Simulated scan of single mutants.
Amino acid sequence: MFTTKKAYEPYVSPFDPCKPIRVKTYSTPPHLYIGFQQPNLPQFTPSEALRAGTLWKAFYDPYYSPYERAREGSST
């Protein structure tokens, strides 16, 4: 399955005084997976493009930090 979210398991030292983070995640931008810009790609309107940060819809990637995702489920 294709996803721009990646994860890896870092080394966890037995002598680390802090609670380890077992899985770390990161986001990769969509332009890494498009070899070249094809003609006639769908475009945002100029006002939408200013908010999205790109003119082409194929290159848009909304970033959500892991902390934002955690807050959505909490009741605070």
Rank of each mutant, 00 (worst) to 15 (best):
E68D: 13
P66S: 06
S27C: 04
L32R: 14
G53D: 04
T76G: 09
P29W: 13
T4F: 15
T76M: 05
K24C: 11
I21M: 09
E72Q: 15
W56N: 01
T28D: 05
E68F: 00
P62C: 03
S47K: 06
F2W: 11
G73E: 09
H31Q: 11
P17A: 04
T3Q: 10
Y33W: 12
K57N: 02
T4Y: 14
S13A: 04
Y64W: 11
V23L: 10
T4D: 09
T76A: 09
K24T: 03
T28V: 15
S75L: 07
A49H: 02
R51V: 13
P29K: 13
P20Q: 07
L55A: 05
Q38W: 06
P14F: 15
A7Y: 09
A70I: 09
L50Q: 08
W56V: 00
I34F: 14
Y26L: 01
K24D: 05
S47F: 13
R71H: 14
F36P: 01
T4N: 12
P29F: 14
E72A: 11
G35K: 06
P29Y: 15
K5R: 14
G35A: 14
Y33R: 01
P42G: 07
T4M: 07
I34W: 12
E48I: 04
S27F: 08
H31I: 01
S74V: 03
T25Y: 13
P62D: 08
P39S: 10
K5H: 10
E68R: 15
E72P: 03
Y33L: 02
E48Q: 12
P39R: 11
S65A: 07
E48L: 12
P29M: 03
S13I: 04
Y8T: 09
Y26G: 01
G53K: 02
L41P: 00
P20G: 05
T28K: 12
C18G: 02
F2K: 02
F2S: 13
Y60G: 00
T28H: 11
K6R: 15
R22V: 05
T3F: 15
Y64F: 05
S13W: 12
L32T: 08
T45F: 13
G35M: 06
P29H: 15
T3G: 13
